[in-house]
Design a protein around this nucleic acid. Structure first.
Lengths: 76, 76
DNA sequence: TGGGATTTGTTCGTATGTATC
DNA sequence: TGATACATACGAACAAATCCC
């Protein structure tokens, strides 16, 4: 799965959508890779990866903690 | 009115709050200064000013248009 | 008609501060 | 203490849309 750098859809939105799908399908559980690792994996800047996770955080899909990491939120 | 660079509250949040207040009090009408000008006025980076306006945009307080500018949204 | 200037919005790379382990 | 990680902030560059002359 790759991101389309030529798409009019912003990379950070594409990545957020991609990660949301993986979470909802249960492919991504517990700990989410660090922004630094996501940046390398998807070939975006760390700030872009962070922005993607910020979207999921606002949606309540993940929980972030400074110095700890990002985690898939428990289902309610 | 100035921003506190030493506050734990992020600059982009401080600026968003400040501008929101000015809009709600009717001090800011119609056209909003360009991000570049806000950046100079409040001594922040252009990206930080942009981020502040993004918050107000999501809140529906302002409307932004590429190549035109930012405008206070009509009251409903 | 066309070209230059302006403005928004995205992205990058980097640096820094704070918190956790 | 040192390594790791999140979050903020900066400066710079670029594309697209718009405006102006």
């Amino acid at each position: 799965m790759e991101l389309d750098h030529d798409s009019p859809v912003p990379l950070y939105v594409q990545l957020a959508n991609l990660l949301r799908g993986r979470i909802e399908r249960g492919e991504l559980k517990g700990r989410i890779p660090a922004t630094k690792d996501l940046a390398v994996q998807y070939e975006v800047a760390q700030g872009t990866a962070e922005r993607s996770l910020a979207i999921l955080r606002e949606e309540g899909l993940i929980i972030s903690a400074v110095g700890r990491g990002h985690f898939v939120a428990k289902r309610d």
